[in-house]
């Protein structure tokens, strides 16, 4: 079996503007990849393009998931194949209770109840008291992040895509989110792509490969903690002149 996700020569446009250029990126089965990059480098655009969010037009290249070409599938079709995404800034939906949202994630009818196990998970995420609140409405930053990860875990995906799960959250929430993600990955053998700006989450999640995305294309690949260390020392400016630039993920 090949990698769980293979992205080949992917180029993406939004409203005619090129946002991603010639992206090559693999996620092996059971492994976690990290994408680093400064603000506006195209990290969220890459996630949106992989997921098939309307408006993100693939103008070149292919996305293969679990051996199947999913480049032109719709968002919900991709999700049903086993890709779960946690957004950086999810919208609020008035009138839709978090409890009902979790049922949708767990593929349950609205008249079914959440199982003991599902409720227990919600409790571990400190979200029991939020279950009957409107999704994301008046949620704090930490509550939104915990709610996003909880939703994705209930979907039991083969591939988790997490957009900045550690930005704007307190220390306890990062520990909680990180350990629950790692527990899920270890238990199920699923894979993950984690976009992170500051890398805090890497203290709790074991990552196997890292990549730096800048100006809509991948500058380098490497061991995540080494890449993070280099960014911390030299900043993203250092990536511009780095000799590793454009090295393929071969090691």
């Amino acid at each position: 079996m090949g990698p769980l996700l293979q992205i080949r020569n992917l180029s993406v446009e939004v409203a005619g503007e090129r946002l991603l250029e010639d992206i090559n990126f693999d996620v092996e089965r059971g492994q976690t990849n990290v994408i680093f990059g400064p603000n506006g480098s195209g990290k969220t655009s890459l996630i949106n393009a992989i997921m098939g969010i309307p408006g993100y037009e693939v103008v070149g290249g292919t996305i293969i998931f679990d051996g199947k070409d999913i480049t032109s599938l719709s968002l919900d079709e991709k999700v049903r194949l086993g890709i779960g995404v946690a957004f950086q800034n999810p919208p609020e939906i008035r009138g839709l209770k978090l409890r009902d949202m979790l049922k949708m994630c767990a593929r349950k009818g609205l008249k079914e109840d959440l199982s003991e196990e599902e409720l227990e998970l919600a409790k571990r995420f400190n979200l029991t008291s939020m279950l009957d609140r409107d999704v994301n409405f008046n949620f704090s930053g930490g509550e939104k992040k915990r709610s996003e990860i909880l939703q994705v875990l209930l979907m039991k995906p083969k591939l988790l895509i997490l957009d900045e799960p550690d930005s704007g959250v307190d220390f306890e929430s990062i520990v909680l989110i990180g350990s629950e993600i790692q527990s899920y990955l270890s238990r199920t053998g699923s894979s993950a792509i984690i976009v992170t700006h500051q890398g805090h989450i890497l203290e709790h999640v074991e990552a196997h490969r890292g990549a730096v995305l800048m100006r809509g294309t991948i500058y380098c690949y490497g061991k995540p903690l080494e890449v993070l260390d280099s960014i911390k020392r030299k900043g993203y400016g250092g990536c511009e002149v780095c000799k590793r630039r454009r090295t393929r993920m071969q090691e």
């Binding site: 969010i53 049903r80 919208p91 008035r94 009138g95 839709l96 949708m104 939703q151």
Partner: peptide, 29 residues
């Protein structure tokens, strides 16, 4: 209906029609 809300629910596995309907139901709370 805000497109970002529809997209959000589609990312949880609902089709576009199902997502629209869930938003309408929630709206008529």
């Amino acid at each position: 209906i805000a497109e970002k809300e529809i997209v959000y629910l589609m990312s949880r596995g609902l089709s576009r029609d199902e997502a629209t309907s869930a938003i309408v139901r929630g709206f008529l709370d």
